[in-house]
Design a protein around this nucleic acid. Structure first.
Length: 509
RNA sequence: GGCCCGUUCGUCUAGGGGUUAGGACGCCAGAUUUUCAUUCUGGUAACACGGGUUCGAUUCCCGUACGGGCUACCA
């Protein structure tokens, strides 16, 4: 089998949507599974929608996920250039070829005229039924066409869709798909500004770049018939790539495909990284900023529309490469389930080595003004990683490791604090202060001895220590927590807390 | 409207002419942890509908319904 070549071909019109990431992922997986090439191609043929910075964003996002292209702008490769805006001569060359072979024609209808036409006739389609009523090189005399061209009259080049043919192709995901060529419109191939449309550019580039498989979203299924026609008309049918159209990622409520606005609407990210647009409306947070690990996000995305046929759920990128097969991609649309994504992230945080999490957690803590040493941070991560779903949870659920509790769970105080026993608790604090080695084991032994000595119960003492040190009943093992906090800090917190508990209790009486 | 695609628990899905229709997330309950989380155990819950074909259809075929996509000089 010849070497596989797959491309991910986003348009630099803004942040890369999460559905695009999944498309990139599947392309990457199939390429890597067979030792092929994963190519990034920038489809910047729409000058009006071009957004500076979008290409850089796309690359950064792919790299964050570990989906590094083998070829592409800035990545090298001998099939470049990889930006369509830099390949204009190629498209012109082949559209001219199509004109010469009678498969395409010049059209001089202005956008205004077409808009007016659609106004009159909402279902207007520029196709075989109407093309002879329009202003184009099929209806104008050769002389008129020549003159228009030489005078610089604005024109587009359109594909001349054939009559009474069935255009069918094999889709790896959907099997055979067929279209009646009479239903196909005369798509614009080359725009008035000299840029190709997606249809033309994608076919020419896939051919020239020797792409073997096109994996893209289902929104392209309908226009694939045009692409097949183009391959045929250009004489490239034997080199036509295999197609696989992916099911769309749908909104959580199932109403339509997931769009960029849905992130704000449903309260979760739909982009890999944060994007700063021109307006607040056009700015978004990303999976990274939301506290997701890239491997977890990839794992989640991989299973959105594909499954390995086994019951394995957790896959590293390498394992995905190994297990992937296009044949097991699903047909039906898939809703975006943030709860499942969070579960994956939690699993990845739990199974990570504390050391691997160090550099991911450090900036989150630093953002709140704390710069603990590695030992402390490592200890903290070890204690908290089973209690974090996102990276942000390390701070949200464990801030009290860095500063004293901001508040105390007063319900628990009301229920369990007995002012009569304040002296006892102070005495325990005194005893703990005498410990030489302030380790979890020692603290525990000392506390147990104290409890036995005073005839108390664990349930009467431990919750108060926890509350005093952390302010909340939620958290890691109390003695380990105290060890990490250290003798001095713990002691200070406990004494202040016990006094405060008394105060709360008194005020309420 | 037209064309194309789809439809198994709430969600992601496995399966496939004869199964107690399996797993995962979520949810609920219990165990463990004198907290929380983790972990473990159990529970809840599905083949859109109508016709065929067949001894037998959730599975195959045809309709219908519903959902989605496309229908630009956007990708």
């Amino acid at each position: 089998m010849e070497k596989l070549r797959l491309r991910f071909a986003p348009s630099p019109t803004g942040a890369l949507h999460i559905g695009g990431v999944r498309t990139a992922l599947y392309n990457y997986l199939l390429a890597k599974k067979h030792g092929g090439a994963f190519i990034l191609r920038i489809e910047d043929t729409d000058q009006a929608r071009f957004v500076p910075g979008a290409e850089a964003y796309i690359k950064e996002a792919l790299e964050w996920f570990g989906l590094v292209p083998d070829e592409g702008p800035g990545y090298g490769g001998d099939h470049g250039p990889y930006r369509q805006s830099e390949r204009k001569e190629q498209y012109r060359k082949y559209t001219t070829q199509l004109i010469e072979s009678g498969r395409a024609y010049y059209a001089f209808d202005t956008p205004e005229e077409l808009a007016a036409q659609r106004e009159k006739e909402p279902n207007f389609k520029y196709d075989g039924r109407v093309r002879m009523q329009m202003k184009n090189s099929l209806t104008l005399s050769g002389e008129e066409v020549e003159r228009a061209l030489s005078e610089g009259v604005s024109y587009v080049i359109r594909l001349k869709a054939p009559e009474n043919e069935t255009v069918n192709f094999q889709d790896i995901v959907r099997g055979q798909v067929a279209f009646d060529s009479n239903e196909l419109d005369d798509k614009v191939l080359l725009k008035a500004d000299g840029m190709p449309t997606y249809h033309m550019a994608n076919v020419v580039d896939d051919y020239l770049m020797e792409i073997t498989h096109v994996i893209r979203g289902e929104e392209w299924l309908s226009s694939t018939a045009h692409h097949v026609l183009l391959y045929r008309s250009l004489g490239w049918e034997s080199q036509m790539p295999a197609f696989a159209h992916l099911p769309l990622i749908l909104r959580p409520d199932g109403k339509g495909k997931l769009s960029k606005r849905d992130g704000a609407r449903f309260g979760f990210p739909v982009f890999p990284l944060a994007w700063k647009g021109k307006t607040e409306e056009d700015s978004f947070t990303g999976f990274r900023e939301y506290g997701f690990l890239p491997d977890a996000a990839i794992n989640f995305l991989a299973l959105l529309g594909w499954n390995p046929g086994t019951e394995q759920e957790l896959f590293s990128l390498d394992e995905l490469v190994e297990a992937f097969s296009v044949e097991r991609i699903n047909k039906s649309g898939t809703r975006f389930d943030i709860d499942k994504a969070k579960w994956f992230n939690q699993q990845y945080i739990i199974k990570a080595d504390a050391g691997d999490l160090l550099e991911k957690v450090r900036p989150i803590i630093a953002a709140h003004g704390y710069e603990p040493g590695d030992d402390f941070l490592l200890g903290f991560i070890g204690l908290m990683q089973e209690r974090a779903i996102t990276l942000d949870d390390f701070w949200e659920n464990g801030y009290f490791f860095f500063e004293k509790p901001r508040e105390y769970d007063t319900k628990v105080i009301q229920k369990r604090w007995d002012p009569e026993r304040k002296g006892l608790f102070d005495e325990l604090a005194d005893q703990l202060d005498t410990l030489e080695n302030y380790t979890a084991d020692q603290i525990k032994a000392q506390t147990e001895a104290f409890i036995n000595d005073k005839g108390l119960k664990f349930g009467e003492v431990l919750p108060m220590l926890r509350l005093g040190a952390a302010g909340t009943m939620k958290g890691p093992a109390i003695f380990e927590m105290m060890e990490l906090l250290g003798k001095e800090e713990t002691s200070r917190r406990l004494r202040q807390a016990f006094a405060f508990f008394d105060q709360i209790k008194l005020e309420s009486n």
